[in-house]
């Protein structure tokens, strides 16, 4: 056993200084600047540094799509990107969809069609649907199913998610 006096103060250990990188990112129209480690994942940056926790981490292995965000106009899995890669990028997350307190048509369609149960996968699905409908405003059911094949939902069986995206597509087209 160590000989220890009571209340020995704990001392900090000298560590190698961390190399940090200065990044500028626009998320949902707001500019952010931070110093980050190279290995910081984009999803951790969005959630823990910026504080936007609507983007979820599911599998953390780029299978489940819960962390999907729109990155320079394309849907990507933010768990499989580094924050440093986002320097100069424009990112849209689930928090950026509603305008003036009103739900985005995709969000409302998910609500109205009961396209979620636990809701964990929902932000990822909605962001993927957002990209899908930008690419293909009038998708067939099969195209929707293929379009969301990178997102997993363990509650709904997908039926209502597909229905919701169909409804949102119709509504967005009429706008």
């Amino acid at each position: 056993m160590f000989k220890m006096e009571k209340n020995t103060p704990i001392k900090p250990v000298e560590t190698q200084q961390k190399q940090l990188y200065h990044i500028k990112v626009n998320i949902n129209g707001v500019d952010y600047e931070h110093d980050v480690e190279a290995r910081l994942l984009l999803v951790h940056y969005i959630r823990d540094v910026v504080g936007l926790t609507g983007t979820h981490i599911g599998c953390d292995t780029s299978n489940c799509g819960a962390c999907t965000v729109i990155f320079n106009g394309k849907s990507v899995k933010s768990c499989t990107m580094f924050a440093v890669q986002a320097n100069g990028a424009k990112i849209l997350t689930i928090e950026g969809l509603s305008k003036n307190g009103e739900l985005h048509p995709i969000q409302r369609a998910f609500w109205e069609n009961h396209a979620l149960q636990c809701g964990y996968c929902t932000p990822g699905f909605i962001m993927q649907a957002y990209w899908l409908l930008k690419e293909n405003p009038n998708p067939k059911e099969e195209e929707i199913r293929k379009g969301i094949s990178g997102n997993l939902c363990r509650c709904t069986g997908y039926q209502n998610i597909v229905k919701a995206i169909m409804q949102a597509a119709k509504e967005l087209r009429s706008k």
Partner: peptide, 9 residues
């Protein structure tokens, strides 16, 4: 290849 998000990158 993979899924749409994977193909985007």
């Amino acid at each position: 290849v993979g899924d749409p998000q994977v193909r985007n990158m």
